[in-house]
Amino acid sequence: MLSSEHISRVRRLYKLIFRLHRGLPAELRVLGDNYAREEFKRHKKCNAQEANIFLHEWTDYAINLAKQMKPLQQAKTKRVGQYLDPQMLEHMTDDQLVQLYELHKAAAAETNENPPDTIVKEKK
Rank of each mutant, 00 (worst) to 15 (best):
19 R>Q: 15
4 S>F: 14
23 G>L: 09
43 H>C: 07
4 S>Q: 10
39 E>M: 15
60 D>N: 10
47 N>A: 08
7 I>V: 12
9 R>D: 09
22 R>M: 10
18 F>G: 00
58 W>C: 01
40 F>C: 05
50 E>M: 11
24 L>E: 01
58 W>K: 07
36 A>G: 05
59 T>K: 02
53 I>D: 08
32 G>S: 15
36 A>E: 08
24 L>F: 02
12 R>K: 03
21 H>E: 10
5 E>K: 09
15 K>A: 11
45 K>G: 11
10 V>C: 03
16 L>T: 10
11 R>H: 14
32 G>Q: 06
57 E>A: 09
33 D>Y: 07
12 R>T: 00
19 R>Y: 05
47 N>C: 08
16 L>D: 06
56 H>I: 03
20 L>Y: 03
28 L>T: 02
3 S>Y: 03
47 N>Q: 01
42 R>K: 12
33 D>C: 14
8 S>Q: 11
46 C>G: 13
19 R>F: 14
20 L>M: 10
30 V>P: 03
36 A>Q: 09
32 G>L: 06
33 D>A: 14
34 N>P: 08
58 W>Q: 01
13 L>C: 04
39 E>W: 12
51 A>N: 13
5 E>I: 13
27 E>F: 12
7 I>E: 11
4 S>A: 09
11 R>W: 00
57 E>T: 09
21 H>K: 05
44 K>L: 13
9 R>E: 08
27 E>A: 14
56 H>W: 00
44 K>A: 11
32 G>I: 03
42 R>M: 01
34 N>I: 13
51 A>K: 09
39 E>Q: 15
4 S>Y: 10
17 I>C: 02
24 L>Q: 03
20 L>E: 04
9 R>F: 01
4 S>K: 04
3 S>K: 06
29 R>H: 05
40 F>W: 04
26 A>M: 09
49 Q>P: 04
28 L>G: 06
54 F>T: 00
22 R>N: 08
52 N>T: 07
54 F>V: 04
61 Y>M: 00
41 K>E: 15
11 R>G: 00
33 D>G: 13
46 C>V: 15
36 A>R: 07
50 E>I: 12
21 H>P: 02
7 I>F: 06
17 I>P: 01
30 V>W: 04
38 E>Q: 10
42 R>A: 13
37 R>A: 12
6 H>F: 13
29 R>L: 11
60 D>W: 09
25 P>N: 13
58 W>Y: 03
25 P>S: 15
28 L>P: 00
18 F>A: 00
35 Y>G: 05
8 S>R: 14
46 C>W: 13
54 F>M: 08
53 I>S: 11
9 R>A: 04
54 F>E: 01
47 N>K: 09
15 K>P: 02
26 A>H: 06
55 L>D: 03
45 K>A: 14
3 S>M: 06
50 E>C: 13
40 F>G: 03
58 W>V: 00
35 Y>V: 09
60 D>A: 07
29 R>M: 14
24 L>N: 08
12 R>C: 06
13 L>F: 04
58 W>R: 08
52 N>I: 07
10 V>I: 04
40 F>M: 09
53 I>H: 05
47 N>I: 01
28 L>M: 15
38 E>R: 15
42 R>Y: 12
34 N>D: 15
21 H>V: 02
28 L>W: 02
36 A>D: 06
11 R>D: 05
24 L>Y: 05
4 S>D: 11
